[in-house]
């Protein structure tokens, strides 16, 4: 460990915040997906750092991170497939136009 634990944690927290901001605030659907990736990466970093310092089995965090990466990829794939489908029918990927569930 090069840096103190807290620094990694602060960094991942800020990255998480940025990601949350993007998910909630991005107009473009793909922009939202990008922000989701940010969140997942922040989480991954947290996992790895913690397993490295606190856990008795250091590989636990990394394996968890592997799975997260795999699932993130899967999620991204399916998400983008959906975006494609929506784009095809509505000719737009702007989030504010996806309001079919409006009252």
């Amino acid at each position: 460990m090069s840096l103190p634990l807290e620094h990694y944690l602060i960094f991942s927290l800020l990255l998480l915040s940025l990601g949350i901001f993007g998910v909630l605030a991005r107009r473009n659907a793909i922009g939202v997906l990008i922000a989701i990736e940010l969140i997942l990466n922040a989480v991954n970093l947290n996992l790895v750092v913690f397993s490295r310092t606190v856990s008795s089995t250091p590989e636990t965090g990394q394996i968890f991170a592997f799975f997260v990466i795999a699932l993130a990829a899967a999620g991204a794939a399916v998400g983008l497939a959906i975006v494609m489908a929506i784009y095809r029918s509505r000719k737009s990927v702007q989030m504010q136009e996806f309001n079919l569930m409006k009252w």
């Binding site: 998910v23 909630l24 605030a25 991005r26 939202v32 989030m95 504010q96 996806f98 309001n99 079919l100 569930m101 409006k102 009252w103």
Partner: peptide, 8 residues
């Protein structure tokens, strides 16, 4: 009006 239909 709370049901905006917008996920965000």
């Amino acid at each position: 009006r709370a049901q905006t239909g917008l996920v965000q």
